[in-house]
Amino acid sequence: MAIHLTFQRDLCKGCQLCISVCPKHILELDSAANRKGYRPAVCRDESACIGCASCGKICPDSIITITKD
């Protein structure tokens, strides 16, 4: 049962709140900037995601969608 994280990359402002609440520490800022000029949050190991939705809940811009197969 795979969990998928989708970030609306160009709406991310790189605030890192999602990174601060992820219990699995699998989120980080991308090395490249998005269209707004921010380094957006990305998931470096989706297979480790437990689907707790903490990142989605705290994202001020509501840009994270979490699904499972």
Partner: peptide
């Protein structure tokens, strides 16, 4: 879907600064 943007919000980007509590 485990989590998605609420239907109580419109599908538009918000102008708030990074990390501002308003969006939450």
């Amino acid at each position: 879907t485990i989590y998605r943007k609420s239907k109580g919000l419109q599908d538009v980007p918000m102008h708030y600064c990074p990390g501002c509590s308003h969006g939450i």
